[in-house]
């Protein structure tokens, strides 16, 4: 190999580090404006047809941890918990679906 390339493990750990920083820290600085769909819905007058969400009482609803009052901490924790939830579910699903390496 002409140039040393980082191992797959290094790439995965670096990617995970970036992900945790984005979800746990950078997310605090995300724009609070309505997204494209919400904006269009309100400007064209169908925004109010959105019903209440079944999960509105979820301890993580609205990307904050219920009971944690510091906004930065609450949002950051919610982001990291979300990463763990998505990671656990995705990993379980993807490993169940994958081709197994032949054992020989």
């Amino acid at each position: 190999m002409s140039r040393r390339r980082p191992s797959t493990r290094t790439v995965l750990l670096a990617g995970l580090a970036v992900t945790v920083v984005l979800a746990g820290v950078v997310s605090f600085y995300a724009s609070g404006h309505p997204d494209g769909l919400e904006y269009v819905a309100h400007s064209l007058g169908f925004g109010d047809s959105a019903g209440p969400h079944v999960s509105d009482n979820s301890p993580l609803s609205g990307y904050g941890v219920k009971g944690v009052h510091n906004a930065r901490l609450s949002g950051g924790l919610a982001g990291i918990i979300g990463v763990l939830l998505v990671g656990a579910l995705a990993t379980a699903l993807l490993y169940a679906v994958r081709r197994r390496a032949p054992r020989d």
């Binding site: 995965l12 992900t19 995705a90 993807l94």
Partner: peptide, 13 residues
């Protein structure tokens, strides 16, 4: 498979 798991969490973040 591990890269795919990383992609899922990255997209969430």
């Amino acid at each position: 498979a591990p890269l795919a798991g990383l992609v899922a969490v990255f997209v969430f973040a």
